[in-house]
Design a protein around this nucleic acid. Sequence first.
DNA 1: CTGAACTTTCAATAACATTTGAAAGTTTAT
DNA 2: ATAAACTTTCAAATGTTATTGAAAGTTCAG
Lengths: 181, 181
Amino acid sequence: MLLKVQKTFLYMSMKLSEAKAQFIQSWGILGSQWGINRTMAQVHALLLVSAVPLTTEDIMEQLSISRGNSNMNVRELIDWNLVSKVIVAGERKEYFTAEKDIWKVATRIMYQRKKRELDPLTDVLTQLSQVDGDPADPEMVAFTTTVANLQKFSNQAQSTLNTMIKAEENWFWGSFLKLMK
Amino acid sequence: MLLKVQKTFLYMSMKLSEAKAQFIQSWGILGSQWGINRTMAQVHALLLVSAVPLTTEDIMEQLSISRGNSNMNVRELIDWNLVSKVIVAGERKEYFTAEKDIWKVATRIMYQRKKRELDPLTDVLTQLSQVDGDPADPEMVAFTTTVANLQKFSNQAQSTLNTMIKAEENWFWGSFLKLMK
DNA sequence: CTGAACTTTCAATAACATTTGAAAGTTTAT
DNA sequence: ATAAACTTTCAAATGTTATTGAAAGTTCAG
């Protein structure tokens, strides 16, 4: 068996390790406000700022979480296309590394959110637009108007997000396309 | 004391009341995936599709929730500027009504999310960009690069959202500004 | 084929978030 | 000033979601 590589953090300057810890902590809080599991966000942060790929063990140690938890969250991140497995020659263990291109990270997260948030709304609205009843009933008018407006909005949001997800960054639409022209 | 107005739902056609119930239920689920309290979203939905303003009691009854819960969520919605109090002549009770303009609803929600999600990230990144250490250390390079890229991204997102929030709808950027030109 | 090295699962448990409802507080008509 | 009508608060109860870790499953070198 090969010698284990000395853990990276032993060589980190104090300042850098503190900064990493704060970044991981902050990204975790942010993540949970985003509806993303806090630990998943922390694992993501850890991999985002690591120069080298890490193993399940590294993640467990650095975040003080269990094996099961580490495994589940890494798999979810792989599912989201934010993390990938790396094969290291001569090692049996799996190593993980995060996508570092922030635009890609952002669009992949957006894609997941669209899938979880907007797509189901669109479906429900389509269904609800078929309700029928007395067109003179003010309650009916209120309902159908609201649903129709939401549909218009959600359709537009769908196509805006699709365009965004497909877009080449262009660094993020140069000053938002000259303030939307 | 004035006669109480007969509850609206007694007069709703079956189809409409079902549709309303489904809308409320769906909006609630959506909301929770959005990091918005499920009940708050349901209260919002109820008011969104009601032709007339409702009281705390109406909300309690129609959603089967307690007085305290109803009160807290209505207040939060008022805080978000999605709901407002309505004075009904000759009544002591407070009535509530929701903003019906969907673009306004969307920008107000975006504003809250920006406040909760993006602003804190921006702050943390500003702080972390000041870390110092050996510029030859690959871990240091990985860290500063990631933080710098995130900063660039978050600044751009800030200004994009600000523009959006200020934007007159124009119906939601006509086909997303001709596919971003 | 075997067993060591590693990964995955999942039921129990812990942590966290929401909801209740009775009590306290406030407002208003008289 | 009083009391009824109404609103707000908050500690306890309930409901939801995340985490653990041991057990089961898989892979691979010899």
